[in-house]
């Protein structure tokens, strides 16, 4: 069988470009660095309404992402949504009276959890619970309230 160096080189180039494409896709197109979940601690917050919050939604403080939502479940005793958040380890100085709210990024954007630090001297630890929470705004409720108010004004 004829076995030339050009053939080897071309095949090598082909395989190499395929691997480069794969690396490009993993590094540039998706974010591989954020795929490896950094070590962190879990914080729980209970919301009356979790709205359209999804697992992996960002958790931010002052607009900076410090963690992600790791699980959302329903508490049958208190009829509340239990949102577990994994906060990155390096952000371990959040006061334990921090409040959590669910906001929407932009008009049609995805929902995220925003933390508002309080003034306590004690810090949130693994498994601690955020007591002060504000639910997601449901558009229909706001429109309903607005209509109700308009109707009230007419009388």
């Amino acid at each position: 069988m004829q076995h030339s160096k050009t053939l080897d080189t071309l095949v090598g180039l082909f395989v190499a470009s395929g691997i480069v494409a794969f690396l490009f896709l993993s590094m540039q197109v998706s974010n591989l660095s954020s795929f490896v979940e950094p070590a962190g601690y879990l914080v729980i917050a209970r919301f009356d309404n979790a709205g359209g919050l999804k697992v992996k939604a960002p958790v931010t403080v002052a607009g900076v992402r410090i963690g992600r939502v790791s699980a959302i479940s329903f508490d049958e005793q208190q009829f509340q949504a239990v949102v577990k958040m994994r906060i990155e380890k390096k952000y371990n100085r959040l006061p334990d009276d921090t409040s959590a709210s669910i906001f929407t990024a932009g008009l049609l954007g995805e929902q995220y959890v925003s933390l508002e630090p309080g003034g306590s001297e004690d810090y949130l630890q693994d498994g601690s619970e955020i007591d002060i929470t504000q639910s997601a705004l449901v558009l229909e409720e706001i429109i309903g309230q607005l209509l109700f108010k308009k109707a009230g004004e007419k009388d």
Binding site: F14, V15, S17, G18, I19, V20, A21, F22, F24, L25, V29
Partner: peptide, 11 residues
């Protein structure tokens, strides 16, 4: 070849 070509195509 197929996965390599598909990755190339996407890139």
């Amino acid at each position: 070849s197929m996965p390599l070509l598909a990755a190339l195509f996407s890139m």
